[in-house]
Design a protein around this nucleic acid. Structure first.
Lengths: 144, 144
DNA sequence: GTGATGAGTTGGTTTTTCCAACGTACTCGG
DNA sequence: CCGAGTACGTTGGAAAAACCAACTCATCAC
């Protein structure tokens, strides 16, 4: 019996945010951009694609479109709670880029944790709170 | 002066792993698949695209191609250290999917941390070790 | 010699993405 | 009132990417 495509949460997540420009739109919203023009300028994405991505994110409940002007009707975009829960994905991607793809000037943007230090994320185990190291995670078979 | 596209580590990371199927290939390698046939079967991706993604990952030093047979020449694929440092990205994506996109049966795969509990990652601050909550991160201006 | 396995490659179709230009509805300055 | 500017898209057509089934090539098992 030839086994099939793997059921996987990574794959499902990628269906939601895996197409080009989507995560850059989300990044912009995290950085505080709200309006179409800002998103277009800061991401550099084609306007029609950005429209599509915003509509799609809205349809999946990650973004809401909020009217901020009556005449002419204009909208801005906000992350929902669900959308904000993409933060760890964006942060770990930023960290990878900072560590491995930065030029001579270092990372192009810096962030600070409320503890006062420059922020760099690491993964911890939710249950025990310890920082996770290589080799500490193993897949367990869900089958009976 | 109209500001330009944002310099950003997230964007750089996406240039590396942002195209379709790339992260699913990486996921498969994390799960232990080594051979082309396994990667093709478990991801479900088109074979020509998978070939391209593997070559690209190799070119960027995330994957190595290792010959395991002379006649006919056959290769398997392994993550390099650099490739393994994509783990947090995959893990946070899996966690998002587990939390928000799982069906009635719950997540399709389970993992265990060496502490004995089922593994779910959270972000912690590398400097202080504390788990990060919403609103604790702020962008700081790198300019003088 | 027939069939199966493994790792691709090929040619042609379909789907996405890209881009510049356009449309609409206002506001502002003169 | 006129023209320019701003904001948020939409449109049509070209270019790039992805998709798919079928094929290759080498070897092994029967």
């Amino acid at each position: 019996m030839m086994t099939q495509v793997r059921e996987c949460s990574v794959a499902r997540t990628l269906e939601l945010v895996g197409s080009k420009w989507t995560l850059l739109v989300v990044r912009e919203l995290f950085l505080g951009s709200r309006r179409f023009e800002e998103i277009a300028r800061f991401t550099g994405g084609p306007r029609d694609i950005l429209t599509d991505r915003l509509r799609r994110l809205e349809a999946h409940g990650l973004v809401t479109r909020v009217q901020y002007e009556q005449r002419p009707p204009r909208f801005e975009y906000h992350l929902t709670d669900l959308g904000r829960s993409l933060a760890p994905i964006i942060e770990t991607m930023r960290e990878f880029g900072d560590r491995h793809l930065a030029g001579e000037d270092g990372p192009p943007a810096r962030f600070e944790h409320s503890c006062g230090a420059e922020f760099h994320p690491v993964l911890a185990c939710k249950a025990c709170g310890e920082v996770v190291r290589r080799g500490e995670i193993e897949m367990v078979n869900a089958a009976t």
